[in-house]
Structure formats: structure tokens, C-alpha cells
Design a binder for these strands. Structure first.
Lengths: 250, 250
DNA sequence: AATATTAAAACATCTGATGTTTTAATATTT
DNA sequence: AAATATTAAAACATCAGATGTTTTAATATT
């Protein structure tokens, strides 16, 4: 099934062969690879090298290795979390300004809200309402839940019925959490977010695309203002000033 | 510097410790970790386990390991390619419909063109012009270059001066290539793309945001029509029908 | 000063032994 | 017969140590 490993690093060669087999459709989610011992023999490499390849494939989200008698290496569908984490890593080093961030969100969040207003079902509304109720509860207890914030935007994205959009929204939201968690949660800010979410929801309930888009745009822009206020006002960057991230030799 | 490794899989534990150290700013791009031997001793693990962790970190784009006397494990900035490949993997399994794809591109490509029209410099124009000239040359030779297509959209995204937008455009464009390469390049389609790019460029040159947005929207929608025509019209999915991707037991 | 040689640092790979997890199969009990 | 407990084997996890390869800084030579 596989060619003998050659070229530079063996594990990398194996990773590429398996990734290609997946992209070509020869290996599919759920498929189990032969046992370490057998596969190492097939590839003509040692167990150690094969295991290094497995760790890389796991990091990419393409493989899951389980112990036990019915265990082994199973091909996996790459999931949202893996992809989002990769994007978060990238954004961390890119260290975009809050302006860049808001610019992007201003582009797609209103459009998503618009789409959601057209496509929302009664079940979706129930879920969003539950989210708002929970958020209110947290707020009354003096807390702000990042999970609920992510989940609100994520739910709207999912109502738009577009998996690509879901990925982007989730990733951006996730990156935002990384900054928000560094800030002491300001209760007034939290309340503003809650009220904005509520206004968006009301527009969705009325199935009013234009209003939904307008409310969402305002929300995104208000969040930016909040972020700029809390963050290092000099830098306006999410993960510290660019200078701090420059390379240093001790 | 590092705690002794505990919990489930040792390599995963090490990956998390190093990733956290990076996100906390304790490790920065260019930093060199101690040698395999020393670091394994520090962590209290075997060389094999440490190497597995290294392979995972390399897959995530966070580390580069080099051989030789001045070699070692160096922390890296996660680059665009790594992130884009991760997104491509996700999109492969998600297998979005061409409609979803176009829907997303319709949202941001026009806005990007609009931004580019406001921010474009003379140097940018020269680069775009060179891209068009090359595309024309290829076209006259009866060829169509995916690289040039990617590069055109990528360049406009870069003119918008927003790294997040660059990532998204590049990723989507990259995923599109995966499908386009499966299709025999239709010369008429190629020519349409070229002419559309030219119209977008002309709007940018005139620094006319509205026109640029309108031309770009039309281009994206025309590309969809082309894709739908070439692809399996039944499925309208980029990577084969969803049925084909279902799990199978041989 | 330029070039060739060399030696050492650091990773790359392999082998084989031992330990741990998981579960299917079996045995036992109720 | 059904529920429960036991067991054994499959498969991965980890380790230790030997050997090989790459790369380059240091040295020697021209």
C-alpha cells in the first residue's frame, strides 16, 4: 500500500504519504492503519520513526492513536478545534492590531447576521434565547462568560448554514478570548455586550436582515472601542506591542 | 525551566508545556531549546518521547529542528503556509458546496477590493500590472496559471493591509486550486478570469472603491458559474459528493 | 587570503526490552 | 440465562543505548 520511505527525514516522508493518501481518498475517516509493527515493516522503517510520523499526523488532526487491544491508528476528520487552534497560533505571531481585527469582523459579522435573519428556524431561536438567558444570569452574578459570547456568535454563524463561515467566526472569536482573558472583566462592558446581543437577537426574531446587520455592525464596533480602552492604548495590538515580540538574544 | 512531564502521553505533555511557554512569551521565535540530550534530562523523559513532541511541534509550525553542530530546536513564528494547509485540510473534510464557497468570497472579496482601492500605492499597481501581463502571456500560450490567479487575489488582499484578511483569502484561494487542478483548464474560462482581473485592476487604478467592489463581486460570481459547470453538477461540492466521503468498511 | 581538512556537536535512525491500557473472550456467580 | 468478575492478548508507550549522518566551526594547508 505504501512506498518505502526515502528523502530527508523519514517521519516527514511518511506524514506526506499518508496525508496524500487521505487527500486522494485512499484513506478515509475511521480507517485503521496496520499496527505499528506491521506498518513499520511495510514502510521499511523503525517503529520510532513511524511513531514520530504519527505524532505529527495527530498534531495535524488527521490521525488518532488509541491504546488497547482494539486500538491502533485511525484516520480522522480534521475538526474545528484543531483548525481554529492553528489559526490562533498564526494570529498570535501575526499580532494584528485591534483595528485589523475589527475591520475583518465588520466585514462579515453583519453579513452573517443578515443571512441568519433569512435562514433562522424556531429551534435556532430557542437556542439563542437560552444563550441570552444564561448570559443574563451570569451578568446578574457579576460575571462574564467568554464561552457564552463565543457561543452566541458561533450559533448565528451556524444559522447562516455555511461551514466556512463557522470556521472563521469561531477562530476570530477564539483569538479575541485570548485577549479578553488578559483583561479584568469590566461589568459595564459585559452589560453592553449583553444588550447588544439582545438587540441582534430581536432583529433575527423579526427576521429583519437589514436591522440584524446594522445591530451587528454596531456591536462589533462597540466591542472594538471597549478593547481599545482596556488594552495597551499605545499599541492597540492584541498580544502586546510588536516590539516585544521581536527576536532577542540573551 | 520546565516541569517534569506527567499525565497521559508524555510527548503531548511536552508539546503543551512548550506551546504555553510560547504563548506566555517565555519562548520567542529564534530561541534555541537545549539539545535533545539535555532537554530530555530536564523533562525527565527519554529522547524518543522528546523527539515525538518535536515532530508534533514542527507539524504545528512552532518549531524547526536542524541537524549539525550549530543545529538544534528553534522556536518559529507560525507561517501562512502552515496555517493555510491546516485550513485546507479542514475544508477538505468539510467539503463545502460551491455555493458556500462563493457565498463567503462574495462577502469579503468585494470589501477587500474596496479597501484596496483606497489604500493602493503606485508600487502595488506595478506588481498587479506585472501579474496581469504574465497571465496574458500564459493565456496566449494556451495555459492558465493557478499561481498567478492566487497571487492576484493575494496581492489585492495584501494591499488592504490586513494580515487576517490575507490569511483568509490565501486559504480560500488555495482550497479552490485543489478543485481547479482536477478540472481540465478551459481556455474560455481562463480568458474570462483574465478579463475580470483586468477590470478589477482598472477600477483600482482609478481608485474607485465602488467600481472595484462591483467588478470583484461579478468576478467571484462568474467563477462560481464556471466551477458549477465544470464540477460534478449533481453534487456542487468541491471534493466529490458527500456520499463518497462517508465512512466505509472494506 | 583563500581553500581544504578535520573534528565535534547535534540530530536521525534503529534495535530490542519492558511497561501500560484496553477490551474481547472466558469463567464465575447469581 | 443474565450479570459480573477474571484473564489474556493485542496494541500502544516508554526507555536505554548503540550507530550513523549532517553541519559547521576550528584548524591546517596552500
Amino acid at each position: 500500500m505504501f512506498k518505502t520511505a526515502k528523502f530527508s527525514r523519514i517521519s516527514e516522508n511518511i506524514v506526506q504519504q499518508i496525508r496524500q493518501a487521505i487527500l486522494k481518498g485512499e484513506l478515509r475517516p475511521g480507517d485503521r492503519l496496520p499496527s505499528e509493527k506491521n506498518l513499520a515493516e511495510n514502510f521499511g522503517v523503525s517503529k520510532a520513526s513511524l511513531r514520530e510520523a504519527f505524532r505529527a499526523l495527530e498534531a495535524l488532526g488527521l490521525l488518532e492513536v488509541r491504546q488497547g487491544v482494539s486500538g491502533g491508528a485511525f484516520i480522522q476528520k480534521v475538526n474545528l478545534e484543531t483548525t481554529r487552534d492553528s489559526i490562533t497560533n498564526y494570529i498570535f505571531f501575526q499580532n494584528p492590531s485591534i483595528r485589523e481585527f475589527t475591520e475583518l469582523r465588520s466585514i462579515f459579522e453583519p453579513r452573517i447576521a443578515e443571512m441568519a435573519a433569512r435562514r433562522i428556524t424556531d429551534e435556532d431561536m430557542i437556542e439563542l434565547e437560552a444563550n441570552l438567558a444564561q448570559t443574563k444570569k451570569e451578568l446578574d452574578a457579576g460575571r462574564f462568560s467568554y464561552e457564552l459570547d463565543i457561543s452566541f456568535h458561533g450559533k448565528i454563524a451556524s444559522v447562516a448554514r455555511n461551514s466556512l463561515i463557522c470556521l472563521i467566526v469561531d477562530s476570530m472569536q477564539n483569538a479575541l478570548v485570548n485577549i479578553k482573558q488578559l483583561i479584568e472583566p469590566d461589568l459595564n462592558f459585559s452589560k453592553q455586550v449583553y444588550l447588544a446581543h439582545k438587540r441582534v437577537f430581536n432583529s433575527l426574531r423579526k427576521r429583519d436582515p437589514e436591522k440584524a446587520a446594522a445591530e451587528m455592525l454596531k456591536h462589533v464596533q462597540d466591542v472594538e472601542k471597549g478593547l481599545v480602552k482596556f488594552c495597551d492604548v499605545e499599541s492597540h495590538h492584541l498580544f502586546g506591542t510588536p516590539k516585544e515580540l521581536e527576536n532577542s538574544d540573551p
